[in-house]
């Protein structure tokens, strides 16, 4: 259950453990790891073992060569989010795991909607809704049209819900979120620099 009224939600990772919220809300967990096999199953096992469902998952190379980035969303308590990040960092090849609330991130999702062309032509409302929501048609043929939409999760879902209500959607896919943190601190860079200096001093 998400409790949006909880006054403890949405804080940074540095707060004391006794203050963390016990209400459930949506968290985004960013994980940086070495590019080694089996890590994806290890990371997903951290969630399944604690009965937390992964809502979205995006994995790709990060801007740092050799480092992979996982962006995972899940609904849980902050206490659990903290535990999940600690357990992920315990895996040998995980460099860093951090949890965030939405207000700490700039978030983007992409979606594709497949729409029947005859339905699209019959109902001008469809094009209007697509335009208002900033969607763009990337392909139109006599059978179907493909609508592309990028934006925040709620914008993507809003477009889908409206078109679906009109019975226009044949297929709908979402990427899951990608995001960058707000603020100037680059935690991974700091971590790697610290470790490199520790290696040199060894």
């Amino acid at each position: 259950m998400i409790n949006s009224d909880c006054d403890k939600c949405g804080r940074c990772n540095n707060k004391s453990e006794k203050e963390v919220s016990t209400c459930e809300s949506l968290f985004t967990i960013q994980v940086y790891s070495e590019n080694t096999p089996v890590l994806l199953s290890q990371i997903s096992a951290v969630f399944t073992r604690r009965q937390v469902n992964i809502e979205t998952l995006n994995v790709c190379a990060s801007s740092t060569p050799g480092v992979h980035k996982y962006t995972i969303t899940c609904v849980c308590t902050e206490e659990m989010a903290k535990m999940l990040t600690k357990q992920m960092e315990k895996r040998i090849d995980v460099l860093q795991a951090t949890y965030y609330t939405d207000d700490q991130l700039f978030i983007l999702e992409a979606a594709l909607l497949k729409i029947s062309t005859p339905v699209l032509l019959e109902n001008p409302e469809i094009s209007k809704i697509a335009r208002i929501h900033g969607g763009s048609f990337v392909e139109v043929n006599p059978v179907y049209a493909t609508l592309e939409k990028t934006g925040r999760t709620e914008d993507v879902l809003s477009l889908y819900n409206k078109l679906n209500d009109l019975g226009a959607v044949l297929q709908f896919v979402r990427t899951g979120r990608i995001c960058i943190t707000k603020g100037t601190e680059e935690k991974l860079d700091n971590y790697l620099a610290k470790r490199e200096s520790e290696r040199k001093n060894k």
Partner: peptide
């Protein structure tokens, strides 16, 4: 091996 950057 006595150093792994992802492991402290």
């Amino acid at each position: 091996v006595d150093f792994i950057r992802s492991y402290t």
